[in-house]
Amino acid sequence: MNLALWICAGLLAAVALFGGIVKTFVPTAKLAASPGGAWVGAAGAGFVKTLGVLEILAAAGLILPAVLDIAPVMVPVTAVCWVVLMVGAIVTHVRQGELVSVAANLVYLALAVFVAWGRFGPGSF
């Protein structure tokens, strides 16, 4: 169970780090032109950059508290925050008609629910 939770948290952290770096450092015009980026055109540049920074922080929050053994309860708390973020992403992508992005977000949502459940429950630190 512990290994599965670590793998899921690592996958989520990698997704969050990559997405955060892209949203933070790639110009919003280029993001809006990319596949699945139609939502960027409707959102402001500041909002997109803020999401990017939050995703980078989520990547850190899914791994570092447990590795450093400093407030490891932050891992499931971060996973719950990721669940909220994914629900918002799903709603946004459904409104834009981006079903491939919705499918990816559902996978990330399931992983985050598993990490939150596991780290709050049977696989807590």
Rank of each mutant, 00 (worst) to 15 (best):
F120Q: 03
K23A: 06
L111R: 04
G44R: 06
A79L: 01
A14D: 08
V91A: 14
I21G: 10
A45Q: 15
F18Y: 11
A29R: 13
Y108W: 15
M74S: 09
S101E: 14
V91L: 13
G123N: 12
P76Y: 07
V91M: 09
V40P: 11
L64C: 06
V40M: 11
G118A: 06
L99C: 02
A4N: 09
V102D: 09
S34N: 10
G44Q: 06
L54E: 13
G36Y: 02
V48I: 15
M74I: 11
M1I: 06
L62V: 02
L12E: 01
A32D: 03
S101Q: 15
A29T: 14
M74K: 03
P65I: 08
R95T: 10
A79H: 01
V100T: 15
F47K: 12
L31F: 00
V67S: 13
V22L: 07
I56Q: 07
C8H: 00
S34Y: 02
V87F: 12
L31I: 02
V73C: 06
L57D: 12
P35A: 11
L57E: 07
A9R: 03
Y108K: 11
W6D: 05
G20A: 03
L109Q: 10
G97S: 05
W117H: 07
V102Y: 03
A110R: 09
A38R: 14
M1G: 08
A43I: 02
P65M: 04
E55S: 15
L57P: 11
A33R: 10
Y108G: 11
G37C: 08
G97W: 01
K30E: 12
A79W: 00
A79K: 00
V22T: 06
L11H: 05
W39N: 05
G61H: 05
L109D: 07
L106W: 04
V48A: 13
A13S: 08
A116S: 04
H93I: 01
L111A: 12
G46K: 07
I56C: 12
A45R: 15
G97C: 00
V83Q: 11
V73F: 15
L62N: 04
G97I: 00
A14G: 12
A112S: 12
R95E: 15
A32Q: 03
L51H: 07
P27Q: 09
G97L: 01
W82N: 05
F125G: 13
V40T: 08
V67M: 13
A110G: 12
N105R: 00
C8L: 14
V48S: 14
V73H: 14
V91P: 09
V73W: 12
V84A: 07
G52E: 04
P72F: 09
T92Q: 05
V84E: 03
L109F: 10
A43N: 13
V107R: 12
F120T: 06
H93T: 01
A14V: 11
V53K: 06
P27I: 09
T92F: 01
M1Q: 03
K23R: 13
S101R: 07
L51S: 11
A43M: 09
A9E: 10
V75R: 05
V80P: 05
A16R: 00
T78P: 10
P27M: 07
P122R: 01
A32S: 09
A112T: 04
K49E: 14
A60I: 13
Q96R: 02
A60M: 02
G118F: 06
F18W: 08
A9K: 04
N2K: 12
A9Q: 08
